[in-house]
């Protein structure tokens, strides 16, 4: 049995990737299971999906704690959560990144393949649909599943030209891994996994983070300040100081209370800003531009 854990962000397709892997394996006469980690999480928040593939029916019903493969659909995730948690000693990591992975924060030593899945997706779809390239790459790395089965699974899910595009992107991910100069990079453990920033300390007591469970689940105010949501962001608002006159329109409309006006200037708190882009749209002077986090 092989066990796979897929890390993504809400809305990114981790659950779909897991599901399609099982469809692909089943078409090859194998058995498997795919399921998400359920939670109240929202679009952009870190999510996980789990896959087990085996020659016989999979009976265990718990999450994958000791993965053979970790598939990371977003290169910012290692900064937010411990994506390598429980990885087997001979485990392999795939991450969507056009850049070498050595610069990322890791919690363990592991061989890491960087797959330019976003770049492939932009070329094929014009949108960052990273799943097919990542699963194509996985097929090239593991002998457990063939590229053809993965392409078929996409084709069945998305009949017609969209399926063909998915098949092409899967092929490109597969081909990338087979290039002679593409080898897994052995990353070494970072001294610590970084958070996206140092969050404000919440009021102590009453079941605040790091405190014992409160018997009646009573919570102190504003403890969410210890939960930075900046990592959910795909694009960041950049305020042009020369244009901004501190009118505060953006502050009024910020769903994440992440904008303030200080000395007639809009200040973004990137620790929490989720990058929705509302501020950029509502600014009557065009002082806020959205910049890609990848850029």
């Amino acid at each position: 049995m092989i066990e796979i854990r897929i890390h993504g962000r809400g809305g990114q397709g981790a659950v779909l990737a897991a599901e399609l892997l099982v469809h692909a394996a089943f078409a090859e006469g194998k058995f498997g299971q795919a399921f998400p980690a359920f939670g109240g999480e929202r679009r952009g928040a870190p999510v996980q999906a789990f896959v087990r593939l085996d020659k016989s029916p999979v009976r265990v019903r718990y999450r994958v704690y000791r993965p053979d493969y970790v598939v990371i659909l977003d290169r910012t995730l290692p900064d937010m959560i411990d994506v390598l948690d429980g990885l087997r000693p001979d485990g392999v990591v795939l991450i969507d990144s056009a850049r070498p992975p050595a610069t990322l924060s890791w919690s363990a030593d592991a061989p890491v393949y960087a797959i330019p899945a976003t770049a492939i997706a932009m070329e094929v779809f014009g949108q960052p649909l990273v799943n097919p390239a990542m699963l194509g790459a996985l097929a090239a790395i593991t002998s457990e599943i063939s590229l053809l089965s993965i392409q078929d699974a996409f084709q069945r899910r998305f009949p017609g030209s969209l399926g063909e595009k998915n098949g092409l992107a899967a092929q490109m991910g597969y081909d990338h891994v087979l290039k002679p100069d593409v080898l897994p990079v052995r990353v070494t453990r970072s001294p610590h996994v970084r958070g996206v920033g140092q969050a404000s300390a919440p009021d102590a007591g009453l079941g605040a983070p790091g405190h014992p469970l409160h018997f009646g689940l009573v919570v102190a105010p504003r403890t969410s300040l210890a939960y930075p949501t900046g990592g959910w962001r795909y694009a960041r608002p950049a305020v042009d100081a020369d244009i901004c006159n501190g009118c505060g329109l953006c502050v009024a409309f910020c769903p994440d209370s992440s904008l303030t006006i200080v000395e007639k200037q809009a200040i973004v708190d990137y620790m929490y800003c989720k990058g929705c882009g509302i501020c950029s749209k509502v600014c009557s002077r065009g002082a806020i531009a959205m910049m890609s986090e990848e850029g």
Partner: peptide, 18 residues
């Protein structure tokens, strides 16, 4: 109504609450 809540990006309800 502090940041760090887990509404989806662009959530209208969050704007309303604040």
């Amino acid at each position: 109504f502090a940041p760090g809540h887990r509404a989806c990006p662009g959530c209208g309800a969050s704007i309303a609450v604040r």
